[in-house]
């Protein structure tokens, strides 16, 4: 029992390395927030492309569905390796192949790219569930008032859909936040890599445990918030709306 406490919960180790671990966690949060914002935008674009009406847009809808299926199916870790290992050799502008935007190193942006490609596909599915939960009468009413499909989406359907998917979106954020640790494989000093380095120097895992605790500090309050949002949505739908959507 003592060995367990010593290996994982050695407070002297934790306090000694606290600043390093916290610095790593800040990078983790930066990854997660930047990726989430971009994935929310990309996911909405994908969801809207998927909802375009008429035969003319059939190829575009088909491509979009293909994209979503593929990037939900590809392991994030492999995608990170594919991007970081070969993007630099592609005949594209260096600003893209070796990105250094906002003073962040290229491996930070490789991680962002992989996360956005994958989570954009996840978010697209969440948006779709939200859009489909808006009763069809809403689109019909908007169209019968002369709005175009795009105007009806923008002013009527999407605002209602977004409200319905806030809870599942927060769940996705939790998953994304944890998945940022995979970027450690390309030598980005986020919390998992920092913890691992300390572990290999000290033969003690307490710094990694500290990293895990920092995740819980963010994730647990979010979980309670999601519960409350779902309860609120349920109360609202019992007065006659569509049910809230849940996702994997």
């Amino acid at each position: 029992m003592n060995e367990i406490i010593e290996q994982y919960f050695d407070f002297s180790q934790m306090s000694k390395h606290f600043d390093e671990v916290l610095d790593g966690f800040v990078i983790t949060l930066e990854l997660a927030l930047v990726a989430t914002v971009l994935a929310l935008i990309w996911g909405l674009v994908l969801a809207l492309l998927r909802q375009l009406p008429g035969k003319g847009f059939l190829p575009l809808r088909f491509l979009t569905i293909g994209y979503i299926d593929i990037f939900r199916g590809v392991p994030l870790l492999i995608l990170i390796l594919l991007i970081s290992g070969s993007l630099a050799f592609l005949p594209l502008p260096e600003a893209i192949t070796i990105p250094q935007w906002l003073g962040k190193p290229d491996n930070f942006w490789y991680g962002i790219m992989a996360l956005v490609l994958v989570y954009g596909a996840y978010y697209a599915e969440v948006y779709r569930a939200g859009i489909e939960a808006v009763p069809s009468g809403q689109m019909e009413a908007a169209r019968s008032l002369g709005m175009s499909h795009g105007q009806a989406m923008r002013n009527v359907v999407v605002p209602q859909a977004v409200r319905k998917v806030i809870a599942p979106m927060l769940n996705e954020f939790t998953a994304l936040l944890k998945d940022t640790t995979l970027v450690s494989v390309i030598a980005l000093n986020e919390v998992a890599l920092v913890g691992r380095d300390i572990q290999s120097k000290t033969f003690n895992s307490s710094a990694l445990t500290l990293g895990a605790i920092l995740f819980l500090v963010i994730v647990l309050p979010l979980a309670r918030l999601v519960d409350r949002l779902i309860a609120r949505e349920r109360a609202r739908t019992s007065r006659g709306g569509a049910p809230p959507v849940m996702h994997h």
Binding site: A141, V156, G241
Partner: peptide
């Protein structure tokens, strides 16, 4: 649609 107005059985007001 700018000449014909339609009112639905289920109202279909925009709830937001």
């Amino acid at each position: 649609r700018q000449r014909v107005g339609l009112v639905f059985q289920q109202f279909n007001l925009f709830p937001h």
